[in-house]
Amino acid sequence: MNRQPVFTMKLETELRDTFMKLAEAEHRSAPQIVRDLMQQYIERHEYKHFLEDKVTSARASIANGQSITHQDAKAIFKTRREKV
């Protein structure tokens, strides 16, 4: 039998009671909701790092002269739109 870790936390009574009432109203268990919240937090964290990496990469490209001007980008996409 697999043993699952237990996560214990201290909450204010009012916060816990409100949370439990809302969970019950949605017919969901508190652990289900907490797992969903944890997963969303992890996804936001991963996305934040993804964006930071993209920005760092873009800045490096600009610093290395591997970029085009705003006007050139507009012209390129104008040409693409006209082809469609």
Score class of each variant (00 low, 15 high):
residue 1 M to Q: 11
residue 2 N to D: 12
residue 2 N to I: 06
residue 4 Q to W: 06
residue 4 Q to H: 03
residue 5 P to H: 09
residue 6 V to E: 12
residue 7 F to I: 12
residue 7 F to L: 14
residue 7 F to N: 03
residue 7 F to W: 12
residue 7 F to S: 09
residue 8 T to S: 15
residue 10 K to M: 09
residue 11 L to F: 08
residue 11 L to A: 10
residue 13 T to A: 08
residue 14 E to V: 12
residue 14 E to N: 06
residue 18 T to I: 09
residue 18 T to A: 05
residue 19 F to S: 00
residue 19 F to N: 01
residue 19 F to A: 03
residue 20 M to H: 07
residue 20 M to K: 12
residue 21 K to N: 08
residue 22 L to E: 10
residue 23 A to L: 01
residue 24 E to A: 11
residue 24 E to V: 02
residue 25 A to N: 12
residue 25 A to S: 12
residue 25 A to F: 05
residue 27 H to E: 13
residue 28 R to W: 01
residue 29 S to F: 01
residue 29 S to Q: 03
residue 29 S to N: 01
residue 29 S to H: 00
residue 31 P to F: 03
residue 32 Q to F: 12
residue 33 I to Q: 00
residue 33 I to N: 00
residue 33 I to M: 02
residue 33 I to D: 02
residue 34 V to T: 00
residue 35 R to H: 04
residue 35 R to G: 03
residue 36 D to H: 04
residue 37 L to T: 02
residue 38 M to A: 15
residue 38 M to F: 13
residue 40 Q to D: 11
residue 43 E to Q: 08
residue 43 E to Y: 07
residue 44 R to L: 03
residue 45 H to K: 13
residue 46 E to C: 02
residue 47 Y to T: 15
residue 47 Y to V: 13
residue 47 Y to E: 12
residue 47 Y to I: 10
residue 48 K to H: 09
residue 48 K to R: 15
residue 50 F to I: 10
residue 50 F to C: 03
residue 50 F to K: 14
residue 51 L to G: 06
residue 53 D to R: 14
residue 53 D to Y: 03
residue 55 V to F: 07
residue 55 V to E: 07
residue 56 T to Q: 13
residue 57 S to K: 13
residue 58 A to G: 06
residue 58 A to Y: 10
residue 59 R to H: 12
residue 59 R to P: 02
residue 61 S to Q: 11
residue 61 S to E: 09
residue 63 A to V: 05
residue 64 N to L: 09
residue 64 N to Y: 01
residue 65 G to D: 04
residue 66 Q to N: 15
residue 68 I to M: 06
residue 69 T to G: 10
residue 69 T to L: 14
residue 69 T to R: 04
residue 70 H to M: 08
residue 72 D to S: 09
residue 72 D to G: 01
residue 73 A to D: 03
residue 76 I to S: 01
residue 77 F to H: 04
residue 77 F to L: 13
residue 77 F to E: 07
residue 77 F to K: 01
residue 83 K to L: 13
residue 83 K to C: 06
residue 84 V to W: 14
